[in-house]
């Protein structure tokens, strides 16, 4: 069980979404979760157009040229943005053997260490993603030119997805910086709903 200091806030839920109570650590995190819940509808769109493709191909012998690529793109965007969402609600899977067996002071130091490492990791990844996204949105001459898929339909999805990955990592950077600030100030991480040891 985690021990909560007096400064800790109870789990906060965005308005109107009480059914999905999620512990978030900051207002910024709450915003991330809010956006992510709307992004989740991309999965619904992906499902709907997959069914459309099956019907058009099997029923009317006229498969589309765009469904498969769009589905992969929508799912890739969902996957990318699920990272900040899981970070915001402390849902990333971790091994809690040590964490759950130490006292509050040591726990806080573990929080500080983990928040710092997470921040540095996200910072390095953001830099790498920026380079990747730059290459995908500019041609060798440095002009604006989106990397495309090369199929007959040829949408600029590779450029989109790479840029979304960059955005997701930058968001995670900001999240973990706020977490670091909080833990340095002595506010413990709100544990996820995983209360068991390990």
């Amino acid at each position: 069980m985690s021990s909560q200091s007096s400064s800790s806030t109870p789990p906060e839920t965005p308005e109107g979404e009480q059914d999905q109570s999620v512990a978030v650590r900051s207002t910024f995190d709450r915003g991330v979760v809010w956006v992510a819940r709307r992004v989740a509808w991309l999965v619904f769109i992906a499902m709907a157009i997959s069914v459309y493709e099956v019907i058009m191909r099997y029923g009317f012998d006229s498969p589309t040229s765009w469904v498969h690529e769009t589905v992969v793109m929508l799912v890739a965007v969902t996957f990318s943005l699920s990272g900040p969402a899981a970070l915001a609600s402390n849902k990333h899977i971790r091994v809690r053997v040590l964490y759950d067996s130490v006292g509050p002071r040591f726990k806080l130091w573990l929080d500080r260490f983990n928040d710092l490492v997470t921040f540095l990791f996200c910072l390095g990844m953001s830099y790498a993603a920026f380079t990747m996204s730059w290459t995908a949105t500019h041609n060798p001459m440095g002009e604006w030119d989106l990397e495309r898929s090369g199929t007959s339909w040829n949408p600029p999805f590779p450029a989109y997805v790479k840029t979304i990955i960059m955005i997701a990592l930058i968001v995670m950077c900001i999240q973990s910086l706020i977490h670091l600030y909080q833990s340095v100030r002595g506010k413990p991480a709100q544990p996820s709903d995983d209360l068991g040891a390990a």
Binding site: P63, S65, V67, H68, E69, T151, S152, W153
Partner: peptide, 18 residues
């Protein structure tokens, strides 16, 4: 897959699937 194959077979009357 990607490239020219899709368009050529489409012009030849086939129904390409991606």
């Amino acid at each position: 897959p990607e490239g020219m194959v899709y368009n050529v077979f489409e012009k030849a009357g086939a129904t390409p699937v991606n």
